[in-house]
Amino acid sequence: MNAKGTVFRYGDDVDTDVIIPARYLNTSDPKELASHCMEDIDKDFVKNVRDGDIIVADDNFGCGSSREHAPIAIKESGVSCVIANSFARIFYRNSINIGLPILECPEAVSAIKAGDTVEVDFDSGKITDVTTGESFQAGAFPEFMQELIAAGGLVNYINRDIENAGKQD
């Protein structure tokens, strides 16, 4: 699986309150959430984001609340992947659970600039900055998480388990 898109670049500690402000949490509709994604730190994000685009950020991306609305808003806005130095842990597990690819790769983060075109190969973890020609290697996911991602998220993974358990009965 591959992703290719234009980079939106952010700094440290991008919190879930700016990814999707609480004032919009009176809905769980992904489209409505996506229409307010990032608006408190980047008013133009929603206007400019295209399918496949990539968010690149520094440390502790997604810190703060447990709202799954945050990765949902990002995914629904068309973003194909988030690359950061590190992720806050609830955001990390939520992203994996809903099937939003996220990669930790400090080398890529320090080299990639806003507006670059970047290509990601999820199978190998290879990140290529098409604009500059540089490429980087992200760490591989542990086996269990690879299974989750391959199943398409936690729900599919669990359903498969429930089905298998049913067959054994």
């Binding site: 609340s65 447990s66 709202r67 799954e68 990765p71 609830i90 597990r93 939520n94 659970n97 809903i98 998220g153 936690l154 729900v155 669990i158 429930i162």
Partner: peptide, 14 residues
């Protein structure tokens, strides 16, 4: 510990 809604759903089910 805090988790997201998908974890909650799966936790409620299993």
């Amino acid at each position: 510990t805090g988790v997201g809604s998908t974890d909650m759903a799966v936790g409620m089910a299993t």
